[in-house]
């Protein structure tokens, strides 16, 4: 996965894939590829979220200490 992708881009792509799969527009030939991609995007987004959450908590805890 490109490292330059933003959370929003990943999210957008993920939403597209979910919609495609949901709409059953995907052929079996593509399915595993799409699911693999979705898993990558999910992992990326979840990591980013976790990172963000940690950062936010860190900032907030700094504020509390004051």
């Amino acid at each position: 996965m490109s490292k330059r992708i933003t959370y929003d881009q990943a999210l957008g792509e993920l939403q597209d894939i979910v919609a495609e799969i949901e709409g059953e527009e995907i052929s079996i030939d593509e399915l595993s590829k799409k699911v693999k991609r979705a898993a990558e995007l999910l992992k990326f987004c979840q990591n980013k979220l976790r990172q963000t959450e940690e950062d936010v908590n860190k900032i907030l805890s700094q504020f509390d200490e004051k």
């Binding site: 999210l11 894939i17 979910v18 799969i21 949901e22 399915l31 898993a39 999910l42 979220l49 936010v56």
Partner: peptide, 30 residues
Amino acid sequence: FQTTRDRIDEEKYFMERSSRLIAEYSQSLI
């Protein structure tokens, strides 16, 4: 703080939902 929390929770929920949906729909497609 609250808004950030809510936003993160919202996104987390979406991720969970996406992964569930993808799994379910892929399986049903198969």
